[in-house]
């Protein structure tokens, strides 16, 4: 059903109907599944990457300029691929590991690969915002590098890290929708197969609506957590 063949009223009516939602409900489940698993791996890899980038920086606590430059270049290369191309490139890797190039799990690998470099850079800049004096104070107290990272830099950067993380989760959601085109399933898949290929505007509307609600919810939650931490520290 679309606006060329039906009235707006009919399209809207159909879009809240049982038939449409019988496609949308399962898609929501599989999008949330992909989002959750991708987020976990992106979080771990992105945080690790960000920490390594900061620590090995030429002004970092363990300067390794050549390593840092090479790592930075690799991150930049990964980030310059359009997500779609990167997903296509990473699918053979999924075949290698999971013996499959379709379905949610196969795409999660590709999604993580396309999202964690961004989080790495965001984590890097969040940590860079921590005042240098705090780092010096920690050093002067005889703090090991490990403790400087985990007891000073990360806790001090926490509100900013939460915001970076929120941005990333939303980017992951956008990329899962894109991955729908490559057999990942989920809302993106429904939107493409029904909404685009079959001109089903009545299916397109609820998928977009659900995505909008998800983005709003993630952003609101991230904002509440970041503000909550800052308020607890009396910084706002």
């Amino acid at each position: 059903m679309n606006l060329n063949t039906s009235s707006l009223g009919d399209v809207l009516k159909s879009s809240v109907g049982d038939e449409v939602w019988s496609y949308v409900w399962p898609a929501i489940g599989s999008t949330l599944y992909m989002l959750a698993i991708t987020t976990i791996f992106t979080f771990l890899l992105g945080l690790g990457l960000g920490i390594v980038l900061v620590v090995t920086d030429k002004d970092g606590i363990k300067p390794l300029p050549i390593f840092n430059a090479v790592l930075g270049a690799i991150v930049n290369v990964l980030r310059s691929f359009p997500s779609m191309i990167l997903i296509i490139l990473l699918l053979p890797l999924s075949r290698l590991i999971l013996h499959k190039t379709y379905g949610a799990n196969a795409c999660i690998l590709a999604l993580v690969g396309s999202c964690f470099p961004m989080l790495g850079r965001l984590v890097e800049s969040s940590i860079h915002e921590v005042a240098k004096g705090k780092l010096e104070a920690a050093k002067a107290m005889g703090t090991t590098n490990w403790n400087i990272v985990f007891k000073v830099l990360l806790p001090e950067a926490l509100p900013s890290l939460v915001r970076s993380f929120t941005v990333t989760v939303i980017a992951i959601l956008g990329t899962t929708a894109l991955a729908g085109s490559f057999g990942a399933g989920g809302l993106g898949d429904v939107a493409v197969r029904f909404g685009y290929n079959r001109f089903r505007t009545d299916v397109l509307i609820p998928t977009v609506f659900v995505l909008v609600v998800m983005v709003q919810a993630i952003q609101a939650l991230g904002g509440v957590i970041a503000r909550g931490i800052a308020r607890k520290r009396y910084l706002v």
Binding site: K134, E136, A137, M141, G142, T143, T144, K151, E156, R233
Partner: peptide, 27 residues
């Protein structure tokens, strides 16, 4: 060797107690 700074350089993520406890915990 203790050091104090012009800009204090206290940790905002810790309470007063946590700041003073920091060098002890690290030790």
């Amino acid at each position: 060797i203790g050091i104090i700074f012009q800009q204090f350089n206290l940790f905002d993520s810790e309470t007063v107690f946590g700041n003073v406890a920091f060098p002890l915990a690290v030790a």
